[in-house]
Write a protein that binds this DNA or RNA. Structure first.
Length: 804
RNA sequence: GCGGGCGUGGCGGAAUGGCAGACGCGCCAGACUUAGGAUCUGGUGCCGCAAGGCGUAUGAGUUCAAGUCUCUUCGCCCGCACCA
């Protein structure tokens, strides 16, 4: 047996070489076996290199993938690069190099870092979103959406990041600032490409019922889509043919609508211009509102502001009473109809507004004190002051009023979503060109498929411009094009796609990564899809995860993919925090570089620690001391060889513990309870040392279980046992329930629920036997001290509780 | 404000309603050592010499039995946020 000390550096390099030479982790081309497709979010190859967060997800899925291979599955565990993006572009600008060169360097570094950690990726399938052979298909998908009317250009107030000089999607604005750089975000009206994700709101919602995502993810997506049911109602204007249409979720409260509010941007304000008596005041308010960023309008301005439209009155269709019309920026032009009926008695915002401006508050649902606060309870309320609704409960009144409105032609049932269309243009260089040209005669025309990809041209300057135009706009030769339809003069679109484009379908490309003719052959997609298990960060729930579900569902609708949902199962890992419990960041000085840990302790110890440090789905502070403990464990495993007996089978004394460990570890891996799986293996090793000597069979069992977490050291020890083919190619061990059984167990004896002692009883003792035999047990008699037993509770294998 | 989650030793954390603190870190003592940031042995929730008592944020409740279920209060985290 080997007696050298454990040297991870040489062991790990050796096995990484062997795996590469043997093509150990290549997905098999044959479709004969059952498949398993495990996915982790492909990294953005930043200049900072890998951080300790990446391996947490990668190791977890690596464990699953390695176990699945050994369970006989054909496993696809791929990796690639989400390589377009602003940081690379900004770095390139600063250092006067081409973003492509920066990207290549970063990818090379990331790849070597990932390889050093021994992940069982199929490197032959790696994809790179910046590769024209890849983004050809990103452009192709965009054109299909364009054809179907899902991509459209619109003048939109967009979220403009002042520092990136670029428009952002709603999802990219976090706490009112740019998600990426933290810069100020203002509203700016720009002509933008949009994707009609709102057309898919219901499908995206319904699809959630068919997939196995953790509840938190489903809930967050549901909230983000934000479905609500209510009614649209038309309010007539006094002395005018115009009407104001509103959306409300509370049609039952129509009798309590005492005024109306339009958003400042509502078109009707222009339409009524001639009749508004305080036009100057209204105009001033609109200008002031337009200057506010969304941040100011929402976060900072809970205090209501507004101006009445003097001379304008609407008619409440339920009461027939004239009511005033106001404009206020608490009503958003982007939601519903951009106008509301205000029911101050039963809506907190309307209530605050009415109190501030002295508008009438009329109670229509009994149960609160509406002069003191809005009463919003819909469960118990009963309608009052509401004509034909009086006496009805809220739910019933809603239905009755909706029916009444439909009957009178005043409104109808309506479903609304908070989800908004996806702003898809970016005014930057390092992204996929949008494959459209604008012809003076034909308008926007798709670049024909045989001319894809529209490649990103080399430009002299990448700097974003203050005018809000992409740097590509300065490339006049490139911009000039012939219209594919009429041959006339045309100009290319110079905006590029957002980073989310390439990542919205990358998992499809892995199924058939080198296909020159289509995004992936249907035959391959039919075999590999859907992704069986996708692990990633919670921060992508309403961005990448939602976007990619949208794209996938669209591709399903046009017949390009075989299943409606891309991911069968979605789990999420917790973030690794700095040792001080704060988020790791350069500015906080608490960043851990995985390279340093691998150099000191080895990749296996690093992997082991990342899986052991705490519950997988919880955020957790880093502790290098804890990582050293994991290295100590591996040292102990290595030294087990010193007490090895040549026998093959399991030691009789250790067999029950080994079978229990096989069961525990096998089950815990599946539930991503990696920390307790590892604790069980540590306990087993403690048992081994306590036993004094172990057989080859004992050690082999441990190596089987530990292999997915610490693949290098286990292969090395396995080889030293001389048990044949490498461990990665060995079947996953089974446990024998019968072997778990022990003859006797120690159970607790409780008196009145408090533990007073322990006794040995046969493991298979039933409640009847216990009731018959245990009251006479000497230790039980002693604990009872002569008191009579009133009640006896026996939990097999666990405890005896005596009530006295 | 709305929605979700969580409060367990010095620390990370275990615990199908059934022996709270597994496993690890740290710490204490000892052994082996020229040496120890190596290794091994023992100890380590709190109070107490002990017997014993007290302990899972808080207060109540259900139960033979509650960290776990129900309600209260306090605190923390995450998501959304004037979405009518």
């Amino acid at each position: 047996m080997q007696n050298q000390t454990y040297n991870p550096a040489s062991v790990e390099a050796k096995w990484q070489r062997v795996w590469a030479e043997q093509g150990a982790f290549r997905a098999e081309a044959s479709h004969s076996k059952p498949k398993f497709y495990g996915l982790i979010e492909f990294p953005y190859p930043s200049g900072a290199g890998l951080h300790v967060g990446h391996p947490r997800s990668n190791t977890a899925m690596d464990i699953i993938a390695r176990k699945r291979r050994r369970q006989g599955y054909n496993v696809l565990y791929p990796i690639g690069w989400d390589a377009f993006g602003l940081p690379t572009e900004n770095y390139a600008i600063k250092n006067h190099v081409h973003p492509r060169a920066v990207t290549q360097e970063n990818i090379a570094r990331f790849r070597s870092q990932l390889e050093a950690l021994g992940f069982s990726f199929d490197w032959s399938r790696q994809v790179d979103t910046t590769d024209p052979a890849y983004y050809k298909w990103t452009q192709w998908i965009f054109l299909r959406m364009f054809e179907k009317g899902l991509a459209y250009k619109a003048e939109m107030p967009v979220n403009w990041c002042v520092s990136c000089k670029c428009g952002l999607a709603n999802e990219e604005v976090v706490d009112g600032v740019c998600e990426r750089c933290g810069g100020e975000v203002v509203r700016r009206v720009k002509s933008q490409w949009m994707l009609r994700i709102t057309d898919y709101a219901q499908k995206l919602l319904d699809g959630l019922d068919t997939v196995d995502f953790i509840d938190k993810v489903k809930l967050q997506q549901r909230n983000w889509i934000g479905r609500s049911e209510g009614a649209e109602v038309d309010f007539a204007l006094e002395g005018s043919p115009e009407t104001i249409r509103v959306y409300t979720t509370r049609p039952d409260t129509l009798f309590g609508a005492t005024y109306m509010v339009l958003s400042p941007e509502h078109p009707l304000v222009d339409g009524l211009a001639g009749r508004i008596q305080n036009a100057d005041e209204v105009a001033a308010y609109r200008v002031a509102a337009s200057r506010k960023s969304d941040f100011e309008r929402t976060e900072l301005a809970k205090d209501k502001t507004g101006v009445p439209l003097a001379g304008i009155r609407a008619i409440n269709p339920a009461t027939g009473a004239p009511i005033p019309v106001w404009i206020s920026d608490y009503v958003l032009v982007t939601y519903g109809t951009g106008a509301i009926m205000a029911v101050p008695a039963h809506d907190t915002r309307d209530w605050a507004f009415a109190k501030k401006f002295g508008l009438p508050i009329v109670e229509v649902v009994a149960g609160g004190d509406v002069q003191a606060a809005a009463y919003t309870d819909v469960a118990d309320g009963v309608l009052v002051n509401s004509g034909f609704l009086d006496g009805l409960r809220v739910a019933e009144a809603k239905a009755r009023m909706t029916g009444w409105l439909a009957e009178k032609g005043l409104g109808q049932r309506k479903v609304n979503y908070k989800l908004r269309d996806w702003v898809f243009s970016r005014q930057r260089y390092w992204g996929e060109p949008i494959p459209l040209v604008r012809c003076e005669h034909c308008g926007w025309v798709a670049v024909p498929e045989d001319q894809l990809p529209v490649e990103l041209p080399d430009v002299a300057r990448y700097e974003p411009t203050d005018s809000g135009e992409s740097p590509l706009a300065a490339m006049t030769d490139w911009v000039r094009a012939a219209c594919p339809k009429c041959g006339g003069p045309a100009q290319r679109e110079t905006d590029t796609m957002p980073q989310w484009a390439g990542s919205s379908w990358y998992f499809l490309r892995y199924a058939d990564p080198h296909n020159p003719d289509m995004l992936a052959a249907l035959r391959e997609l039919q075999y590999w899809l859907p992704v069986d298990w996708y692990n990633g960060g919670m921060e992508h729930t309403t961005l990448h995860l939602l976007y990619s579900r949208f794209w996938h569902r669209f591709l399903y609708d046009i017949g390009a993919v075989p299943c409606p949902e891309p991911y069968r199962k979605r789990t999420s890992h917790g973030m690794i925090l700095g040792a001080n419990g704060e988020k790791m960041s350069k500015s906080r000085g608490n960043v851990i570089n995985p390279d340093d840990i691998v150099a000191e302790l080895g990749a296996d110890a690093f992997r082991l620690y990342e899986m052991f440090m705490g519950a997988f789905d919880q955020p957790i502070p880093w502790s290098t001391q804890g990582a050293r403990g994991c290295r100590r464990f591996l040292d102990r495993v290595w030294r087990l060889a010193d007490m090895l007996q040549p026998a093959d089978g399991l030691s009789p004394a250790l067999a029950p513990a080994i079978h229990a460990a096989i069961k525990k570890v096998s089950e815990d891996y599946e539930r991503m309870k990696f920390n307790t799986a590892i604790a069980a293996m540590m306990s087993l090793v403690n048992d081994f040392y306590a036993a004094g000597s172990i057989t080859k069979g004992d050690l082999a069992a441990l190596l089987h279980l530990l292999n997915p977490v610490a693949p290098h050291i286990t292969e090395e020890l396995w080889q030293s046992l001389g048990l044949g083919r490498p461990l990665y190619a060995q079947p996953w061990p089974a446990w024998d329930e019968a072997a778990l059984a022990r003859d006797t167990v120690e159970i607790a004896v409780q008196i009145g629920g408090k533990v007073r002692g322990r006794i040995q009883v046969p493991a298979d003792m039933t409640a009847e036997q216990a009731a018959a035999e245990l009251p006479g047990h000497p230790r039980v008699l002693e604990l009872l001290g002569g008191k009579p037993i009133r009640k006896l509770i026996f939990v097999p294998g666990r405890l005896l509780n005596l009530v006295v």
